[in-house]
């Protein structure tokens, strides 16, 4: 009995010795190291290790993980390429979902990106995720056809409420008309800026233009034509500056609001991980 035990122990040695002889770069060890780097969020190094393995032995799983690395590093273009290649592989459903996510993050038109096979899922959870992200993309695009009913069908009630409010803001943005702002300031200097909630600058504009108008009038009345002309020029300078500034103020107001809304929506989706199950984005203990 003792001899059998000893011989069985002895038989293990060649494999030990062999593995050590080929150093720390055997495919198994490289994979283990790459997974470790991935879990340490050292994604570039992890992707390089996966790529090294890929050159020896190509596999869908390695491509998927390389795609994940790029996704995590916010290099969405590269991630998208990897997930696109895997659409019909054994990891097709996960890849299609992550492809949709990268397209969304790249602000690409999701309708144009998807094909007929895109929304065919065997896994119910992934199918739900896919549909939810599609709806989120429609909301962001400000599509009026985002049906409140379909939001209720696909989301929890609290999320559906939040998304409805976002849908409303995207489809009916609270913007200011630059032309109206310019027109208001043409009628009353600074009024356009007040319209864009730029109260301080609006009032300053009114005071400055008003003051120079008074000096223009006063000097003209007092018989100082040269000074009157100088003040007339300054009045015109500030008056037209106010008209131009009001137009720009409204334009900038709209851009800032749009950016704010986008950031708010993005941070909401990010808090929900874009409705994607976290397990498919690499599991780490």
């Amino acid at each position: 009995m003792q001899t059998i035990f000893f011989l069985s122990l002895l038989s293990l040695f060649p494999s030990f010795l062999f593995s050590q002889d080929s150093a720390l770069f055997t495919p198994e060890k490289r994979k283990a190291f790459a997974d470790h780097l991935f879990c340490e969020k050292d994604y570039l190094r992890a992707s390089e290790e996966y790529e090294g393995l890929q050159s020896v032995n190509k596999s869908d799983s390695l491509s998927y993980y390389i795609g994940l690395c790029f996704l995590k590093m916010n290099d969405y273009e590269k991630a998208k390429d990897y997930f696109s290649q895997l659409k019909n592989s054994s990891l097709g459903e996960e890849s299609r979902l992550l492809f949709l996510k990268t397209s969304f993050l790249l602000n690409k038109n999701i309708e144009g990106e998807s094909d007929s096979s895109s929304n065919q899922f065997m896994n119910k959870e992934l199918k739900t995720s896919f549909r939810r992200l599609e709806l989120a993309a429609q909301i962001k695009a400000g599509m009026d056809q985002t049906n409140p009913l379909s939001l209720n069908n696909h989301f929890e009630e609290s999320d559906a409420q939040i998304l409805k409010s976002f849908a409303d803001k995207f489809s009916h943005p609270n913007s200011k008309s630059p032309f109206a702002a310019a027109l208001f300031s043409t009628l009353l200097p600074g009024a356009g800026k007040i319209y864009t909630k730029n109260y301080g600058d609006g009032i300053t504009s009114l005071i400055v233009t008003g003051l120079f108008t008074f000096l223009w009038y006063d000097n003209f009345r007092a018989g100082h034509p040269t000074r009157a002309w100088i003040f007339a020029g300054l009045t015109g300078f500030f008056y037209w500056g106010s008209v131009y500034g009001s137009y720009i103020s409204a334009r900038n107001y709209n851009l800032e609001k749009e950016e704010e809304l986008n950031n708010e929506f993005q941070s909401y989706l990010s808090s929900k991980n874009y409705f994607i199950p976290t397990e498919i984005e690499g599991s780490c203990k």
């Binding site: 301080g200 600058d201 009032i203 300053t204 504009s205 005071i207 400055v208 300078f237 500030f238 037209w240 500056g241 106010s242 008209v243 131009y244 500034g245 720009i248």
Partner: peptide, 19 residues
């Protein structure tokens, strides 16, 4: 023309010490 209008607007904003 645009540069002068931008300058006039900036000058006005310069006066607004509160904002």
């Amino acid at each position: 023309i645009e540069g002068t209008l931008m300058f006039a607007d900036r000058f006005t904003r310069d006066f607004n010490v509160l904002n």
